[in-house]
């Protein structure tokens, strides 16, 4: 009898709490980057920040932004996570692609060459087989790096591979060098040992962006705002608990503590929408247009969907007016 009364009381209290909470529970499918720079998405999910804002997030991990955006177009997820290069490149053809916010700014690229393949400095790259994941920030990094050496893609033999393949083929010697992001850089470096030569330390700046389709964003504005709120809660938690956040990353992605300590200053987990994202996309799009014989580059200001972030955190919106 007593147990029944207690159970009834708990049910009443739970119901009261549930119904007193503002708004309904929304559901959203998130295609997250399966790696350290996508940490905010996983923390928000695993630490219950999405639950706090009454958002049910069905999260799915992808090894690259391009894969996540493809999945979004395939209808597997509602929101994808990708670097600005991915968005910039896809925006040439996908006019409904919209940027919600950046969730991480990072410098995590690395350029590793094999000494036994005659690469000891950046002067030895000409004619070498260089692996890279196409349609990624690494691709742009490669172009910039080569330009700094006075080279273009035509001066080398570019090999388009997935990050996992890059690691395998660089270690096996099927390619002479590779440009990719962490933790794959460290994996190659560790495997090659003294045979590895690091030609680039951190690469150019990149931003991991939340993107969605225009039609979905218009229809799911409340869910999108809850998604942003949950991510902002995660950001606040990371700022307040950096050591716990590091520990979470080590455990979540099976990383090395030394690696995290090295990477941590090069990844800034924050929900923002700064103006330089547009400028960065403009920069890469000029190269993309030229490389792909496209005369018109997209107006990336139109890809910005700032209303939901402005509604949640106005100060985070740094883009200028359209």
């Amino acid at each position: 009898m007593l147990i029944a009364i207690l159970a009834l009381g708990a049910a009443v209290v739970g119901a009261a709490v549930y119904f007193l909470m503002p708004g309904p529970v929304h559901t959203i499918r998130l295609g997250a980057y399966e790696g350290d720079v996508g940490a905010l998405e996983w923390i928000a999910k695993d630490k219950g920040f999405f639950d706090q804002v009454r958002l049910n997030v069905e999260i799915k991990g992808y090894p690259s932004g391009d894969a996540a955006v493809k999945a979004m177009h395939a209808g597997e997820v509602d929101i994808a996570t990708a670097a600005e290069l991915v968005v910039a490149k896809r925006s040439f053809d996908e006019k409904n692609l919209r940027i919600l916010a950046g969730i991480c700014r990072y410098w995590n690229k690395g350029f590793i060459g094999r000494k036994d393949h005659g690469i000891t400095t950046h002067f030895d790259l000409k004619g070498k087989k260089i692996a890279f994941p196409a349609t990624s920030s690494a691709e742009h990094n490669l172009v910039v790096f080569l330009a700094l050496q006075g080279l273009t893609l035509e001066d080398v033999v570019p090999v388009n591979l997935t990050p996992k393949q890059i690691v395998e083929k660089t270690i096996s010697g099927e390619v002479d060098a590779a440009i990719v992001w962490e933790p794959h850089v460290s994996a190659i470096e560790d495997a090659l040992g003294d045979n590895a030569v690091k030609l680039m330390e951190r690469g150019t700046e990149a931003n991991l962006l939340l993107v969605g389709r225009q039609e979905h964003l218009d229809a799911q504005s409340q869910a999108i705002q809850k998604l942003l709120k949950g991510l902002i809660l995660a950001e606040d938690w990371v700022r307040a608990n950096p050591e716990q956040a590091k520990a979470y990353l080590i455990k979540r992605f099976a990383l090395d503590a030394i690696y995290i300590d090295k990477l941590w200053p090069r990844m800034q987990l924050a929900v923002t929408l700064p103006q330089e994202i547009l400028e960065a996309m403009d920069s890469v799009s000029r190269w993309i247009a030229k490389a792909n014989n496209r005369e018109q580059i997209p107006n990336y200001a139109e890809t910005i969907h700032a209303s939901d972030l402005r509604a949640v955190k106005p100060a985070a919106v740094g883009v200028f007016t359209k």
Partner: peptide
């Protein structure tokens, strides 16, 4: 360098502009 390709110069200029705007940010 007159031998340098225009593509390299464009990439460098573009990246420099990008980095400058990022520094400005």
């Amino acid at each position: 360098d007159s031998r340098q390709s225009a593509d390299v110069i464009d990439v460098l200029a573009s990246q420099l502009f990008q980095d400058a705007t990022q520094l400005q940010a």
